[in-house]
């Protein structure tokens, strides 16, 4: 009888804990960072060993294809250098014009690059552990990106490691807009490879293939970062919103290195 009451009490407490963590995810952040601090150094060592072994394989056994690849890369590099020169010119002219207009100057965000050392043990959540933490300036809520686009945001930080919630997770939300038509909505994860674009009005013009970027309104992600492309649109006869599927540009299965924005991009008025 006592055991049954104790059992019911534990179940009740667990449900309360789940409810609290659902409404206030910050409440459990402190205690949940303890196991991360203990387990992550081992994850780091194992991932490092795997990377080292696969690195040997890539570097020494694929030498045959490397020469060919090298030629192609040289060609691409020369194109990139040309493009870079154009970009420098545009940047200089942009600066001149901003000065001319007495406009605000964009201060670039400070970033930290980190390595993914572990993935989520549950098939239902999409998070990764990175090898940078509080000591590197990372704070909760910092946006995480890769060159392909937005990856997610930091949800838990320990001294040397952090947990990143990917945008494909069910609990993730990113304020976004369609680059072509400027239609706004919220990108939510589905715990699969795709995301859904919520609260997009039916009147908005959205087509398959449209680029979706961050709007910057949520205060987490800087404006203009790539998220993905529209892969499906369903416009029903009733309702005020349309159903839009978005496929992220980032390949979350092959995520190895990420960039964390440790200070947001700030705008300040330049004094004349």
């Amino acid at each position: 009888m006592v055991l049954a009451i104790a059992g019911i009490f534990i179940v009740f407490c667990s449900v309360i804990l789940i409810a609290v963590s659902d409404r206030h995810p910050d409440a459990t952040e402190g205690i949940s960072s303890v196991p991360i601090s203990i387990i992550s150094p081992f994850q780091d060592a194992v991932t490092g060993s795997i990377t080292f072994i696969t690195g040997i394989w890539r570097h020494y056994f694929y030498l045959v294809s490397t020469a060919k690849e090298n030629d192609e890369l040289k060609k691409m590099l020369s194109q990139a250098v040309e493009k870079k020169n154009q970009c420098i010119e545009i940047e200089l002219s942009n600066q001149r014009l901003r000065k001319f207009l007495d406009f605000q100057k964009t201060r670039m965000a400070q970033t930290v690059s980190a390595e993914v050392i572990g993935k989520d043990p549950s098939p239902w959540s999409k998070t990764v552990i990175i090898d940078k933490g509080r000591s590197d300036g990372i704070r909760k809520g910092c946006p995480v990106v890769v060159p392909d686009g937005i990856t997610g945001q930091v949800v838990s930080v320990s001294t040397y490691y952090s947990k990143v919630l990917l945008i494909i997770d069910r609990n993730s939300a990113v304020d976004a807009l369609v680059q072509r038509s400027r239609a706004r909505g919220i990108i939510r994860g589905m715990s699969a490879e795709d995301c859904t674009f919520h609260y997009v009005l039916r009147k908005n013009d959205i087509r398959v293939g449209d680029e979706v970027i961050s709007s910057g309104i949520d205060g987490v992600y800087p404006k203009g970062l790539r998220i993905g492309y529209v892969s499906g649109v369903i416009r029903r006869n009733s309702g005020i919103f349309q159903e839009v599927d978005v496929t992220p540009h980032v390949d979350f299965e092959k995520l190895e290195e990420v960039i964390v924005f440790i200070t947001p991009a700030e705008y300040e008025f330049e004094m004349p």
């Binding site: 789940i18 659902d22 995810p25 949940s32 043990p121």
Partner: peptide, 24 residues
């Protein structure tokens, strides 16, 4: 349960509850 809940990004307490129920 505590370790799993800490490592995943889901609802905290879910694995404690599930493991307890399975144990019972």
């Amino acid at each position: 349960g505590f370790c799993m809940d800490s490592m995943t990004g889901g609802l905290f307490g879910f694995y404690i509850l599930v493991y307890f129920l399975l144990f019972i």
